[in-house]
């Protein structure tokens, strides 16, 4: 008689041990290389943002629009402002991550000038207004000296998702465009695609 119940008890004891509360008391934190690819949920993450930023800047800087502009403007560098990058995807994407990288690469190339985007400009104007009222007259910065941008960068990130429970494929397409502010002429269109196949385990012990 004892063997039967004992087997059942053993089975349930194992279940209890495996489903019972864990012994972890705090988070386990490790510093990792920012370039290291880490994917947990399969959602958009820093690696995707870096991939898009890198691909877009590389493509943008090798295209002839900079030289064309210089040739028609007496060798002057084009001035670029970053506009809105719309998120038309299924996920929350912080587009600022790759627009900042994009700006940095343009600046570091020394072939383009970059001016602050609209929200920053508003903040700076507020600061300039403050300076007018409170600063030493010799250090006052004048209004009306801002550099007008020649081109605006606009973009959109879209996704197509195909999903069944436990598995999904997602296709991200990022499209950036540089548009001449005066003429509406598009001088560059960049495109970057990422496709992911994400699978969840159906069972664990």
């Amino acid at each position: 008689m004892t063997r039967y119940p004992f087997c059942i008890s053993l089975l349930f004891c194992v279940a209890a041990a495996l489903t019972g509360p864990g012994c972890r008391t705090g988070p386990d934190v490790q510093r990792t290389d920012p370039a290291m690819v880490v994917d947990y949920s399969g959602r958009w993450n820093d690696t995707d943002a870096q991939l898009v930023a890198r691909a877009m800047t590389e493509d943008c800087l090798v295209r002839p629009w900079i030289e064309d502009f210089k040739a028609s403007h007496g060798g002057q560098k084009p001035v670029v402002v970053v506009g809105q990058i719309r998120n038309n995807s299924h996920e929350h994407i912080n587009t600022e991550v790759f627009t900042t990288s994009f700006e940095r690469e343009l600046l570091n190339s020394s072939r383009v000038r970059v001016v602050a985007e609209s929200q920053l400009r508003a903040d700076i104007r507020e600061e300039r207004r403050n300076i007018q009222a409170n600063s030493d007259p010799e250090t006052i910065k004048k209004f009306g000296k801002e550099i007008g941008a020649d081109f605006i960068l606009l973009g959109v990130v879209s996704t197509i998702k195909d999903e069944v429970e436990g598995r999904y494929a997602i296709y991200y397409q990022s499209n950036f465009e540089l548009i001449h502010i005066e003429t509406n002429e598009k001088v560059w269109i960049g495109e970057h695609k990422i496709k992911k196949d994400i699978k969840r385990k159906a069972w664990k012990l």
């Binding site: 194992v14 279940a15 495996l18 489903t19 969840r200 385990k201 069972w203 664990k204 012990l205």
Partner: peptide
């Protein structure tokens, strides 16, 4: 939402019990 997704992976022991 995340918990709902994580719970897709079923525990064999919990399911059996």
């Amino acid at each position: 939402e995340q918990l709902g997704e994580e719970l897709y992976t079923k525990s064999f022991t919990a399911q059996s019990a």
